Structures are given as C-alpha cells and as structure tokens.
Simulated scan of single mutants.
Amino acid sequence: MEQLRDAAAEGRIDFEELDTRLEQALNSKTHAELAVLTADLPRSDTAAGQPPLVLKGGLHGASRGPGRWEVPGHVIAHGGLGGVKVDFTRVECRLTEVTVEAYGEMSGVTIVIPDGWAADTSGMDPAFGGLTDKTTPDRLPGTPLIRLAGSGGTGGVVIRHPNRRERRKLERNPAQG
C-alpha cells in the first residue's frame, strides 16, 4: 500500500487508480495478488536508486537551500511545529519534473522556485491551512516542473518565486553557491 501511495504522490498513477488498487490490496489474500498491484508501475527516481529528500520541521524548523544541492526526483517536507523552507533558486536541476510532497502540519511549508520554473498544484489538498500559489505559468524550455502533492494541514503550503529581499541577495551574490 505504501508503494501505491508513493506512486500516486509522484504522479506515476492518478488518485482514481490509487483508490482502485488500494481496495484490491485490502482484499488480497496472497503475496502474489499484492505483487500484481505494483508490478506495472512506472519506475520512479527512488526506484532508480535516488532516495527522496525528507525534511522535517520538528520543533525548530528545517530548510534546504539557498545554495547548491542535488535535487532528487522526490522531496518530502513535513512542516511540524517549526516549519520547512525548500529553496530551489541556486540549484542546477537536470530533471524535467520534481515531485514535492508537502504537508503543512502546524507551521507550514514554503517552496521557492526560480523564475522560469512552473508548478502544478493540482495534486494538493489545501486542507485547513490552505495552498498559496504565487508562481507564474511561464515555464522556460529545459526547466523542471514542480509537481506539488500533499496537504496544507493547519499551517498551509506556499509555493512562490523569490521575493524582493531574496532577489536582492541573489543579485548581490550571483556566483554564491
């Protein structure tokens, strides 16, 4: 069931297919019946040996970036009590898509993407905290699409391009990594 949920979060199957397969999994009586439910799933970056990046806000918060870091095909962010910020502004990403699974929980998750990158937020459940999408749909050729999934929780999830302060910092230190 975990493999099926991961596949849906990564966009490898849609949510209707997830519901159908989960129901079949619950009614399965043998390991062979279960194996059939995941045998035809498209490979993910995790399956190719690249584990997801997991960030947990905990009590004090967590962040990744702004700096150079290797972007996996799947990022999981749990806001916890301290919140999480994922900043893609200084990365070099050769992937065409990156799945970001965000759970706002109590303090929320903020995702910052460079200008020219686009986001698909259709897989997000805004929940109580909501989803704020301040990105533009103008995706430049060769840039990744951020496919957002998860739940806003009570803290909410924000995806945006750099704000004024972040832009000034990027302009002052263009080669910083």
Rank of each mutant, 00 (worst) to 15 (best):
58 G>S: 08
68 R>L: 02
96 T>M: 15
76 I>M: 05
88 F>T: 03
52 P>A: 06
107 S>E: 12
112 V>F: 05
26 L>F: 15
126 P>E: 07
131 L>G: 03
48 A>E: 10
129 G>Y: 08
102 A>K: 02
48 A>G: 15
39 A>Y: 07
68 R>V: 00
25 A>Q: 09
53 L>E: 10
90 R>D: 01
114 P>Y: 04
49 G>E: 04
83 G>Q: 09
55 L>A: 07
62 A>H: 01
66 P>G: 00
69 W>E: 00
85 K>A: 06
123 G>S: 09
87 D>M: 02
131 L>A: 06
128 F>E: 05
50 Q>M: 13
80 G>D: 06
33 E>K: 11
85 K>C: 01
125 D>T: 04
31 H>M: 14
32 A>Q: 15
110 T>A: 10
45 D>N: 15
135 T>L: 07
38 T>G: 03
107 S>L: 09
26 L>G: 14
105 E>K: 12
100 V>P: 00
65 G>M: 03
52 P>H: 10
29 K>T: 14
89 T>W: 02
56 K>Y: 08
60 H>Q: 06
53 L>G: 01
65 G>Y: 01
72 P>D: 11
123 G>L: 07
111 I>G: 02
116 G>Q: 09
43 R>E: 15
72 P>F: 12
49 G>Y: 06
96 T>K: 15
82 G>W: 05
41 L>W: 13
26 L>A: 11
104 G>K: 08
40 D>Q: 11
116 G>M: 02
29 K>W: 07
131 L>Y: 05
82 G>D: 12
122 S>K: 13
60 H>Y: 09
40 D>T: 15
90 R>Y: 05
81 L>A: 13
80 G>T: 12
86 V>Q: 04
133 D>S: 10
59 L>T: 07
55 L>E: 05
57 G>I: 14
105 E>P: 12
79 G>Q: 11
82 G>E: 03
108 G>W: 01
88 F>S: 00
128 F>T: 09
71 V>P: 08
88 F>H: 05
67 G>R: 01
102 A>V: 00
111 I>T: 00
108 G>F: 07
32 A>M: 03
26 L>P: 02
110 T>Y: 05
65 G>F: 00
93 C>P: 01
101 E>P: 08
90 R>A: 06
67 G>H: 12
71 V>E: 15
72 P>K: 06
74 H>E: 07
82 G>F: 09
135 T>Q: 08
109 V>F: 08
66 P>C: 00
45 D>F: 10
105 E>S: 15
129 G>H: 06
70 E>H: 06
107 S>G: 13
35 A>D: 13
55 L>I: 04
33 E>G: 11
94 R>A: 12
109 V>T: 02
63 S>K: 13
101 E>Q: 06
97 E>D: 15
123 G>F: 04
78 H>C: 09
134 K>A: 13
58 G>Q: 12
132 T>G: 01
61 G>T: 04
97 E>A: 14
62 A>M: 03
114 P>M: 03
56 K>V: 10
129 G>M: 05
47 A>V: 10
134 K>E: 12
34 L>Y: 13
117 W>A: 03
109 V>R: 10
38 T>Q: 11
79 G>P: 11
106 M>P: 13
54 V>H: 11
108 G>N: 06
71 V>K: 06
111 I>Q: 01
110 T>M: 08
105 E>D: 14
93 C>D: 00
28 S>T: 05
111 I>L: 13
44 S>I: 14
91 V>A: 03
74 H>V: 04
63 S>W: 09
